[in-house]
Simulated scan of single mutants.
Amino acid sequence: MLRMPAMQAEMLRRAEVIKGVAVGLSPVDEGGPHPGQYKGSWTTHSVSRGGRRRDRAVAYVRNTSYYARWVEYGTEKVPAHHVLLRAAQIGGRNQ
């Protein structure tokens, strides 16, 4: 049951909700070299062999821009935005 196509589809649906919230929360540096790249780099995908024991459907939300971790966790000069963390918290409530 944990790997059924319906379960995989539900996990992907939930990931899409979180992705939508993340896009809405994403900061855009209009004066920067790549305005909107971070916001446009959110992706989702699901697999049927996920989890620690590889026995369940899982879905992933990630940002493919090279500087995504700096936006999420911050640097010495830039504060952390925690976009994915906040999106998971908000999106999890809206499902």
Rank of each mutant, 00 (worst) to 15 (best):
2 L>Y: 12
3 R>N: 08
4 M>S: 02
5 P>Q: 11
5 P>T: 03
6 A>N: 10
6 A>M: 12
7 M>S: 13
9 A>T: 04
9 A>E: 12
9 A>I: 07
10 E>I: 02
10 E>R: 14
11 M>G: 00
12 L>T: 07
12 L>Y: 06
12 L>K: 06
13 R>Q: 02
14 R>N: 06
14 R>G: 09
15 A>W: 00
16 E>C: 01
16 E>I: 06
18 I>H: 00
19 K>M: 11
19 K>A: 10
19 K>L: 13
20 G>W: 05
21 V>D: 13
21 V>I: 15
21 V>S: 10
21 V>Y: 09
23 V>P: 03
23 V>N: 03
23 V>I: 15
24 G>T: 08
26 S>E: 04
26 S>N: 07
26 S>F: 03
27 P>G: 02
27 P>D: 05
30 E>K: 11
32 G>S: 09
32 G>K: 07
33 P>W: 13
33 P>D: 04
34 H>T: 11
34 H>P: 03
34 H>V: 08
37 Q>F: 14
37 Q>I: 11
38 Y>L: 15
39 K>S: 07
40 G>N: 06
44 T>M: 04
44 T>P: 01
44 T>G: 00
44 T>E: 00
45 H>R: 09
46 S>K: 00
46 S>R: 01
46 S>A: 15
46 S>L: 01
48 S>D: 08
49 R>F: 10
50 G>L: 04
50 G>T: 01
52 R>Q: 13
53 R>I: 00
54 R>D: 12
56 R>K: 01
57 A>Q: 00
57 A>I: 05
57 A>T: 05
58 V>G: 06
60 Y>H: 14
60 Y>R: 07
61 V>A: 02
62 R>Q: 05
63 N>Y: 00
64 T>Q: 06
64 T>I: 12
65 S>C: 12
65 S>D: 09
66 Y>E: 13
66 Y>S: 12
66 Y>N: 11
67 Y>R: 06
67 Y>H: 12
68 A>G: 01
68 A>T: 00
68 A>C: 05
70 W>D: 09
72 E>T: 05
74 G>F: 15
75 T>M: 13
76 E>V: 13
77 K>Y: 11
77 K>M: 04
78 V>C: 10
80 A>Q: 12
80 A>W: 05
81 H>R: 14
82 H>R: 12
83 V>C: 11
83 V>G: 02
84 L>Y: 12
84 L>A: 12
84 L>N: 08
86 R>E: 10
86 R>L: 09
90 I>V: 15
91 G>Y: 04
92 G>W: 13
92 G>K: 02
93 R>D: 10
93 R>I: 15
94 N>Q: 14
95 Q>V: 15
